[in-house]
């Protein structure tokens, strides 16, 4: 079953064309990576899928729900992690998790399960009881990832999930994401870290200047270009999309 169908998506900021017709599909249980240089349009695409921005043209379907007609249905099944986001500074970590869980929990038991999962994923132990304003960047990121995944969304949309995390923390987060998918979730993420992309993603789309220039599995792409890692593929594709 297709989780997400994005068809010929266009978005302008004033007279600037940020997306010039993006098309891709994601299968259920997949980790799909959107890879591209700065300003390519990754965040814009993710924001449209998460009902934050209205597309100027094209269509998006998430689990069969149309973006324009049923945004509220989409919001029920997704969870979005913005790039460099923060949490409410006046709350403690645990209070923040509880605040979010309230929106999704069906009953008290479900609520407690969610919060417990969140505590586990965040891995902040005692620091969860201190205010978010005292957290380091990486700690805040962990908290937000926990928040995004604890509610068990059908689709998690993660904008640069491991940015700002040290090697160990990033590894742990990657494992959490893998685990999430093994339990039946689907992930759409954007990233700059090619190692991560190769390790995590089942399929990737290379995006440049608001257009998708290549889609495929990391392995397939490497073979197609005869290169040894995704970073080289990325460099080659981006270089080519400008000149060839």
């Amino acid at each position: 079953m297709k989780t997400i169908q994005v068809d010929n998506l266009k978005k302008n900021y004033g007279s600037f064309q940020a997306l010039k017709g993006i098309t891709f599909e994601i299968e259920q249980g997949e980790i799909f990576g959107l890879i591209g240089p700065n300003g390519a349009g990754k965040t814009t695409t993710l924001r449209i899928i998460c009902t934050l921005l209205r597309p100027d043209a094209g269509s998006v379907r998430v689990f069969g729900h149309d973006l324009l007609t049923e945004p509220h249905e989409i919001r029920k099944v997704i969870s979005y992690l913005p790039e460099d986001a923060g949490a409410y500074k006046e709350l403690t970590g645990i209070e923040y998790l509880r605040f979010i869980a309230r929106f999704f929990a069906k009953d008290e038991k479900h609520f407690n399960q969610m919060v417990e999962r969140g505590v586990q994923i965040a891995g902040l132990s005692d620091r969860l009881r201190t205010k978010v304003s005292t957290y380091s960047k990486g700690m805040t990121r962990r908290l937000l990832i926990a928040r995004a995944l604890m509610v068990n969304p059908k689709l998690a949309v993660l904008d640069e999930p491991t940015s700002g995390l040290d090697v160990l923390n990033a590894r742990e987060v990657r494992n959490t994401i893998k685990e999430f998918v093994q339990n039946g979730g689907t992930v759409l993420l954007s990233s700059h870290n090619m190692l991560e992309v190769e390790f995590l993603c089942d399929r990737i789309a290379l995006i440049n200047n608001g257009e998708i220039v290549k889609t495929g599995t990391p392995k397939g792409l490497k073979e197609e270009f005869g290169l040894s890692n995704v970073e080289e593929v990325f460099t080659e594709v981006i270089r080519c999309s400008g000149t060839c």
Binding site: R47, C50, T51, L52, H72, R75, K76, I78, S79, Y80, L81, P82, D84, A85, G86, A87, Y88, K89, I100, F103, F104
Partner: peptide
């Protein structure tokens, strides 16, 4: 202003609340 800077509003707006 703070909600915009922290993107907490952005998060909230993708959640199932009116």
């Amino acid at each position: 202003g703070l909600e915009k800077e922290n993107k907490t509003l952005e998060t909230l707006m993708t959640m199932p609340v009116k």
